[in-house]
């Protein structure tokens, strides 16, 4: 394809991505280096019959003018990154000095909002992703072994947890695990503890969020594996059988190697999606027990005062996290591409 034709064809979508993905990324990087102007304070003397007292007041006009003049705020360098809400350098150092051991240090770190969000996001990502893959694989093998006639309905119902809006799906589960809901009540009966409440316990909340994550994502892994199973070479399977391979050996040495490239694909997509975990935390009202990086940004942006600089700094740190997570894949793609060219 000619250069000029290519240019015109990709122009609309390139413009859209440039304006609304690339520029915002530049914009958050810039924003995170600035902080909002402080209010301009003027000091006046208030003189009464008992002498003069100095009072301070906010000069609204001057503040407004300053904000209009430099809408970005004043340059602050990396201070936003280093403050308590983000990397919290001073607090970490203090915790390091004060703590008696690793456990204590970890506990202190979890009191800092950024590290708390980071801890949950990473735990969630690295627990949910493998479990999703395993469960998806098991469902795929089971459905593949089912009678052909019922496979359609099986796939239909399996798709539901994935297709339904994450916020809505997690709300549905949340209502069921409510102490007055069916799962919550069952759990109470099983544990023989009428006070048991998922909402009130941090470990239970973490488990619940991850259960939701697996429930939501397993259908994706299932569908991809199921499609992969349709293309397993039957000749190889049969010859393995003739050679005396047991059922398990056939899965282990024929099917799983065949599905391995698919696993890379699923893992890549799941890592990206789990790292942005956000909606379930809103639905489960879990912010007291578990926060994620995306939730931290949402929290900064919402509410009365929009803390743009703080949100921007968290966004930049999140993007760095995504980049680190993706780097092995990118390096591999790059190597394959250069190998293909030479």
């Amino acid at each position: 394809m000619k250069h000029s034709a290519f240019f015109w064809f990709v122009l609309p979508s390139a413009t859209a991505m440039l304006l609304f993905i690339f520029f915002p990324i530049v914009s958050i990087i810039v924003q995170s280096l600035y902080v909002e102007h402080a209010q301009v304070i003027i000091e006046t003397e208030n003189c009464g019959p008992f002498g003069c007292t100095p009072t301070t007041m906010v000069d609204q006009e001057a503040t407004e003018a300053l904000r209009r003049e430099q809408p970005l705020g004043r340059f602050a360098g990396f201070t936003t990154y280093l403050d308590r809400g983000h990397l919290a350098v001073n607090e970490v150092a203090a915790a390091w000095d004060a703590s008696s051991g690793w456990r204590d240090f970890g506990g202190r770190m979890l009191n800092l909002p950024f590290y708390k969000a980071m801890a949950f996001t990473l735990t969630y990502t690295f627990i949910v992703t493998p479990l999703t893959i395993i469960l998806g694989f098991m469902i795929a093998v089971a459905v593949n072994g089912a009678v052909r006639a019922i496979r359609g309905p099986l796939i239909f119902f399996s798709l539901l947890p994935m297709i339904v809006t994450p916020l809505v799906g997690s709300l549905i589960l949340f209502w069921m695990v409510d102490a007055r809901g069916i799962i919550g009540a069952t759990l109470q009966a099983l544990a023989d503890d009428p006070g048991l409440s998922v909402k009130a316990s941090t470990p239970l909340m973490w488990i619940m969020l991850m259960v939701y994550g697996v429930w939501h994502a397993a259908p994706f892994a299932f569908i991809v594996y199921y499609a992969g199973l349709q293309t397993v070479n039957t000749d190889t399977l049969e010859s393995a059988m003739i050679d005396g391979a047991s059922r398990w050996q056939r899965i282990r040495y024929v099917v799983i190697p065949h599905l391995l490239p698919l696993t890379t694909f699923i893992a890549l997509i799941q890592l990206m999606d789990n790292f942005r975990v956000f909606e379930p935390i809103v639905s489960f009202a879990a912010s007291a027990h578990a926060t994620s990086l995306s939730w931290a940004i949402y929290n900064d942006l919402g509410g009365e005062t929009r803390q743009l600089s703080s949100a921007a700094a968290t966004s930049v740190l999140t993007i760095l996290g995504v980049a680190i997570l993706l780097s092995p894949v990118l390096v591999r793609t790059w190597r394959e591409f250069s190998r293909a060219r030479t």
């Binding site: 609304f20 743009l308 921007a312």
Partner: peptide, 20 residues
């Protein structure tokens, strides 16, 4: 490849770039 990197960005990180 750039599109793939953009796909990996959590949308909420872009929002603070839009708002101002």
């Amino acid at each position: 490849i750039i599109a793939l990197i953009f796909r990996a960005m959590p949308p909420i990180t872009l929002v603070s770039g839009y708002l101002p």
